[in-house]
Write a protein that binds this DNA or RNA. Sequence first.
DNA 1: AAAGAATGTGAGCTTTTACTCACATCTGCC
DNA 2: GGCAGATGTGAGTAAAAGCTCACATTCTTT
Lengths: 216, 216
Amino acid sequence: MSPSNPSQIRKTPRQRRSAETVEAILTAAAHILEKEGFEAATTNRVALKAGVSIGSLYQYFPNKESLVRALNDRHTREVLELLQRRFAEVRLAPLEEAVRAIVQAMVDVHRVNPGLHRVLVNIVPGIGGLTETKALEDAAAGLLSQFLKARKTELRPLKPDLSAFMLVHAVEALTHAAVLERPELLKGDLFVDEASRMILGYLLGGPEERRSRQNK
Amino acid sequence: MSPSNPSQIRKTPRQRRSAETVEAILTAAAHILEKEGFEAATTNRVALKAGVSIGSLYQYFPNKESLVRALNDRHTREVLELLQRRFAEVRLAPLEEAVRAIVQAMVDVHRVNPGLHRVLVNIVPGIGGLTETKALEDAAAGLLSQFLKARKTELRPLKPDLSAFMLVHAVEALTHAAVLERPELLKGDLFVDEASRMILGYLLGGPEERRSRQNK
DNA sequence: AAAGAATGTGAGCTTTTACTCACATCTGCC
DNA sequence: GGCAGATGTGAGTAAAAGCTCACATTCTTT
């Protein structure tokens, strides 16, 4: 509504019919983006696939960019909510178990819509002045940083913010790569094992550093 | 020349003049891609910025895609050559030193043209059926896998190919993230320290695994 | 039931983009 | 100097994309 809100929906749906239209558009856009990439996701094709007219699309999304942003916002919200929930769940769990749970959460999130997620991560920053994906990374890093602070007696001395930055990016990239290039890795526990090992190795430090603490 | 060579240059420059034209086009394309992204890099704009006519551009590149590919091929080649050199140099160095050198090499490579590198990595796969970037990752993983096999007495038991896959993606992502979001990290040794620590923690394993080997 | 609001339609306008082609200019060679 | 091939030019074309708008249909409310 407000003029300084370019990423927002143009008209808020008031009837169920229109809510379904918006949903159909978003779903169609997600499918095309996932399967054929950004270039192929023309507004006309999205409308066609959604089974609505191009006019309807523009009734709710002022431009193509806002469509991609809406998708990204929704996705970002989902990921963040899952991560928050998972972090809360493992607050009291043993370190190793907690780390595994978080890694598993990342994998779960990315397995839902791997292609879409990748497109969003890659394309959106170049398109709109995207702050959302960056915001997600920052939020995830914040959660992790809190986690590290709470566990500091179990870990080697480290700078929580820096370590959170390193881990967020490492785990995100590993998950992306695994989902897209080695999906078979995700069948068993192999990937989660390896990623968790990397994280724990980083957080616990070498033998000397471990010896100077009592815990596990 | 051959019809089944869509990513190649259309006409091989025979005079210095034309070689300079090609160079100007590639440079201009790199600049626009780096600073404004793929969408902004229209062929007309590239030609304009290169100071040549659009006709000249199409004399050497049959289409826009081939331009991006040429850029990518060149970049890929440079990265791979540096990595090969660096791996060879550290073949006999102590493990920790070797790891640091490799990480440093990754950082060096990415600091040259960070934005361009990211655009190439992200955009190109979606555009052309890009095999080059994937090939680079595979080649890097191959080098690393060799490295791990050669060092196996120093490391915990691991599957070289899997570990190489994990490390290549983790280090690449960390380097990207650092270059693009935290360039100040790269001033000192902080980033290389942290990344190396992550790698070593992963390769050496926990205290039990280390104890069962004599080395370091 | 009837009006007004909300929603839906799609032909087509406007702009942009990749790309061509007929022609001009340069360079090396005899 | 002059010829031939290499190189350079840029107005123009065709296709495609984003987006609008005048109008049709459906829903809500009284």
